[in-house]
Amino acid sequence: MNILQIDKVTKTYGAHRAVDTVSFSMPKGSIFGLLGPNGAGKTSLIRIITTITGADSGQVYFNGEPLNRSHPSQIGYMPEERGLYKKMKVGELLLYLAQLKDLSKAEARQKIGYWFEKFEIEDWWNKKVEELSKGMQQKIQFIATVVHEPELLILDEPFSGLDPLNTNLIKAEIAEMNRKGTGIIFSTHRMEQVEEICEYIVLINQGSNVLEGKVKAIKDQFKENLFRVDFKGQLPSGLGDSVRILEALEDSVTLQLLDDGFADANALLRYLIEANVQIQAFNEILPSLNEIFIKQVETTTHE
């Protein structure tokens, strides 16, 4: 079952096509990376999912139903550009935002209390937002995003501007919410975070999705049969004929299997062992998402 299914969604602003027939689906309870360079159309797409704007064509399904006005209360959205009413008191502001997400006042109060306790900020209730530091405001923004326990959480660059301590705090909260079944869309261009957190990704460039799937599958798809061998002794001299040697050091070598060379890594290993090379480590080098990202963005941009 998919919590979200995007079906050929297109959105045009004037002459600019911000989202161009994008389709993908997001399984329930997964952590999903929405990737793309700046201006790729991520925010436009998110605005369609959060019903801020409508799509020109195509359809978004939330839990199998076409997106409608009842769904925003099941979605929590933290925009990249954070914003709060600076003059309001923290408690009043959170109560207000929670009630707008269809919580009753009592429910809202109780849930805000839970988060205040968790973040140990019980004495913030009567503080004005503008009195808080930027990092503190981020925490409030996070609470505002999750207080109504949404089924789908959309976080646009959630860690920008957070110190490492708060980053870890928020990361832990996201992980816990995911364990409880919350689906999370993680929009970013920080690849190392995606690799660390996301199960699925979709890569968008110039309005279209260029890549989609499980992180592991994508890495497999883009692997270049690179291996790194740490060894002792002498490499057989004929090795260079059947593989491409990219880097050769005294006790380690990075090489790429060729189509007409060894059938697989095992064949290479067997060959090396038979040649009396003492293997200390044998690793496949998978491409990082960052490399895949840059490569895909470059190849799709100039089309």
Partner: peptide, 16 residues
């Protein structure tokens, strides 16, 4: 003000 301090995006994800 709402537009400048970006609260509007949070608001519009809840209300029309």
């Amino acid at each position: 003000e709402e537009k400048t301090n970006r609260i509007v995006e949070v608001m519009i994800s809840s209300v029309r």
